[in-house]
């Protein structure tokens, strides 16, 4: 499979990343190389196998859905910017 520049930029956009014009060619070459390398799995004898879901057991471990208060809210908020009244200030989303 060959990846086009347009496709690369689209995938980057889906990843919330923007690539500078001067970076695109390098990314494209590396990306193509990684895909070519990964294509080795096309010939793998796995048709009859199940996918691995859990490493040690394939089931969910449930716990009670209880609200617990984090012990140090100030320490949590310390890493954010533009905090007001324990909330994160953001640009308008709905105009």
């Amino acid at each position: 499979m060959s990846v086009s520049e347009k496709e690369l930029v689209h995938i980057a956009d889906l990843s919330s990343l923007e690539l500078k014009k001067e970076e695109i060619q390098d990314y494209l070459e590396n990306f193509q190389e990684i895909i070519d390398f990964s294509n080795v799995i096309n010939n793998a004898p796995v048709e009859d196998l199940d996918i691995t879901i859990g490493i040690n057991e394939s089931k969910n471990r449930f716990r009670k859905d209880e609200v617990k208060e984090f012990e140090d809210t100030d320490a949590l908020l310390f890493n954010g910017q533009g905090i007001q009244q324990n909330m994160y200030k953001l640009p308008k989303v709905v105009q």
């Binding site: 990846v3 690369l8 995938i11 980057a12 889906l14 990843s15 919330s16 990343l17 923007e18 690539l19 990314y27 590396n30 990306f31 990684i34 895909i35």
Partner: peptide
């Protein structure tokens, strides 16, 4: 994200998204 992540991290995120 584009300013904060280095090249290899971006490369892997993009390939992972793909």
């Amino acid at each position: 994200r584009s300013e904060g992540f280095g090249d290899e991290v971006k490369r892997r995120i993009i390939f992972g998204t793909y």
